[in-house]
Amino acid sequence: MRIGLITSDPAHPLLAATTALLAAEHTVRTLDPATAEPPEPPEAPADVYLLKARTPRAISLARALERRGARVLNSAAATELCQDRTAMAEQARRAGLPFAATRTYPTLAECAERAEFADEQGPDGRSGLPGPVVVKSRHSRKHDLVTRVDSAAQLRELAAAHPEEPVVVQEFAPNSGWDHKLWAIGDRVFTALRRSELSPGGRGPTRPLAPDSLPPGWTALVHRVGEVFALDVYGVDVIDRGDGVPLIVDVNAFPGVRDQPGAPQALAALTLSSAGAGAGA
C-alpha cells in the first residue's frame, strides 16, 4: 500500500517509529505542506494520508487530496474544527460533553475593555468574569497564548502585550495542578499525567498513568469525543474537578503521543485498516 505523511517533521518520534513498522512492506512518502502540492494525474493519491500538520496550508493540502478521493486521517474538516477553540467548545457543549464554558472576544484588547472581574464590576453593567480565568488564543497553534489571569489589572497588562489577538476565556477550575492527557489512536487509549502549564511552577514532567486507573467512565468519554469530532487520532485534555468529575479543556487533532508504549503499533494498524477500507470502498 501507499501511505502519505502530511508533515514538516517526519522525524517526529511517533511518525518515525510508525514509518519503520510500515516501510518494510509498504511505500511511505512524506508531503511537506510548506512546499508540496496535491499530486496531479496521472499520479494517483496514496491509499491513505496521515495529517500530522495542522497549519492552514496543511489542511488545504489535505482537503485537495480528499476532493480527489483520498482517505485522510484525521479529515481536513475535523482537523480544522479543532484549531478553532470557539467552534470546538460549541461542538462539545451541543453534544453534552463536560467542556469548560467558553466566552469569545474578537481581540484581547476588547476583552480587557469589556469584561471586568465579578468582584470589580461597576454599575455600568459590563459583564463580569468569575476570576480567576484562563485566557487562550482562539486559534490553536504552536506557541499560542494560554495563561491564567487573576485580576482586571493583569488582564489589561496581557492585552497591552497582545492587543489584536482573538481569544477565548474559560473559568479556571480548581484542580491538583496535573492535567490528564488522554490520547486515542483508533480504539486504543493512552494516558499520562502532565504538570499543568498554569501551575505556579509552570509546565513540568509527564508521568505515566495506566488506562485502567482512570475514574469510571473516562475511557468512554474519550471515545465519545472521537465520535463527536469525527477524529481517529486525537488527544483530550481533562482536569479532575474532584471525586473523578471530568472537565474537558481542550481537544487536539493528531497529537504527539510521545513515549507511550504501543502507540506506533496502534497507529500502524489504524493506517493499514483505514487504507484497506478506502481501497474497498
Rank of each mutant, 00 (worst) to 15 (best):
G235P: 08
R241G: 14
G244K: 11
V238N: 01
V222H: 06
G242T: 02
P205F: 04
P246R: 11
V233C: 14
G217M: 03
G217R: 04
P246K: 10
P211I: 08
R224V: 06
D243G: 14
E227R: 15
P200M: 09
L198K: 10
T206Y: 02
V225R: 10
W218Q: 07
L231A: 13
R203T: 13
D212I: 00
P215Q: 12
R207E: 15
I239T: 06
V236L: 09
V245W: 07
E227W: 04
E227P: 05
P208G: 02
R241C: 13
H223G: 02
P246Q: 13
G202L: 10
D237Q: 06
S199Q: 08
G235C: 09
V225G: 09
L221P: 05
G202V: 02
Y234A: 11
V245K: 14
A220T: 13
P216H: 12
S196I: 00
P200S: 12
V236I: 12
W218P: 01
D237S: 09
P208H: 04
L231V: 14
T206G: 03
G242P: 07
V245A: 15
A230K: 13
A230F: 02
S213M: 05
R203S: 14
G244V: 07
S196W: 00
V233G: 10
D237Y: 02
S196N: 02
E197Y: 06
P216T: 11
P216Q: 13
P215F: 02
Y234H: 11
G235S: 11
G226T: 11
G244T: 09
L221Q: 07
G201H: 05
D243N: 14
V222D: 12
G217H: 03
R241H: 03
R195F: 00
R224Y: 04
R195N: 01
V233N: 12
R224P: 06
D232A: 15
V222Y: 04
D232F: 04
E227F: 05
V225D: 06
G235L: 04
L209A: 10
Y234L: 10
S196C: 01
L209F: 14
E227Y: 06
R241P: 03
G235W: 06
V222Q: 09
P216A: 15
G226M: 11
D240H: 01
S213P: 00
L231M: 14
H223V: 04
E197I: 13
A220S: 15
V225W: 01
T206D: 05
R207D: 13
G202I: 03
H223L: 10
P246D: 13
D240W: 03
V225S: 05
F229L: 12
F229H: 10
A220C: 04
P200H: 07
G226I: 09
T219P: 00
F229M: 12
Y234E: 12
R207I: 06
R203L: 12
I239W: 01
V238R: 00
D243Y: 10
S196K: 02
D237E: 14
G201Q: 09
L209P: 02
R195A: 07
A230M: 09
D243I: 00
P215D: 13
G244S: 08
